[in-house]
Design a protein around this nucleic acid. Structure first.
Lengths: 177, 177
DNA sequence: TTCAGGCGAGAACGTACGTTCTCACAGTGT
DNA sequence: ACACTGTGAGAACGTACGTTCTCGCCTGAA
């Protein structure tokens, strides 16, 4: 097993365990067991747990947005499709809310790298929604998206994606002046 | 210092420290130092850290909703006043997001008491907003409220309360059929 | 075959935490 | 004055974690 393969397995294990149980509940030994990568190699790939956390968040950001954007693009970039995708995400059996919001809650004083990864994700999602619509509407949809995600996580009920879709539909219909 | 006074000081210290730094970053010794209550007494008031966390959340829930509801009631129960209150909250210098959402992120597998406190808070806020409006609108405002809170916490920018107020105003105007 | 270098398994180390225990002492009733 | 109860300060204990170190083993080159 070479360096890049070990890195991938570690990130896979990190994503599974960190997302499911939270970062601080998962020890380095659990990551070793889940990934099959020895501790020595682990510290060759990532010089600290913080670095692994940051890498986990950055990779998840890319994949998450990639999945969302591909789904929406396949539906003609209809902004409402964002909420259909959310409904699918919320319905996944291991859905536990937004990894970035959860990490924000975990780290009262996050390391700079982790804080940057969290802000980057949220900023990029917002920008994407603005790109689908406009400045004002994008911000509105972004707020809806974040709220729906938090609510779905706490209530373990995916249906908030559907009601948020209806809300979004109202916001997307031109308002009379 | 009697039992109830010690309990109050402990809850005050817990609210300050847990909210500012996160639960798991605050040790029992820090709570002792902040509250001035000895460890022995602390464990007479709360038999474990989990119990203190749950009590902290429950007291905060009551105070938080009490403040919101009083503010809104003084403005004739105008649902839009909710977002004015949020703007004030987001602007507080030590604002760090919703304590319940943060705790949800911290505890991947929360103790039953903590999980119940989190769900209770979110359920009561939703019910309150439904009471101000109706089932459908209340859910919409609730999603907006949660989204605005998460975004304000991550971006450290209170203005999302104002844009959410505008969004809420749109949703509150009767829609043409 | 032999030797060197890197590896995996896991022990070891330092630290920090939650919780309990020790002990000297203050308050109180007689 | 004196025993008694309960207190505060902090030491002590057990555990868990992040990180580093040890050591036996495998591989590959000479």
């Amino acid at each position: 097993m070479n360096h890049t393969e070990a890195t991938t397995k570690l990130l896979d294990a990190a994503e599974t365990l960190f997302y499911a149980h939270g970062v601080h509940a998962v020890g380095m030994d659990a990551l070793r067991a889940e990934s099959g990568v020895s501790l020595k190699r682990l510290y060759q790939c990532f010089s600290s747990k913080d670095e692994l956390v940051e890498a986990y968040l950055r990779r998840r950001d890319g994949r998450w947005r990639g999945s969302l954007e591909a789904y929406v693009e396949a539906r003609g970039n209809d902004p409402l499709a964002v909420f259909d995708w959310l409904h699918g995400w919320f319905s996944e059996p291991d859905f536990r809310g937004c990894a970035f919001v959860n990490s924000f809650g975990e780290f009262g004083d996050p390391s700079p790298g982790v804080a940057a990864a969290i802000r980057l994700h949220s900023g990029e999602v917002r920008r994407y929604l603005i790109g689908l619509t406009d400045e004002v509407l994008g911000d509105r949809l972004f707020t809806l998206l974040e709220g729906a995600t938090v609510i779905a996580a706490i209530t373990e009920d995916a249906s908030v994606a559907l009601s948020s879709r209806e809300t979004a539909a109202i916001l997307l219909t031109p308002q009379q002046l």
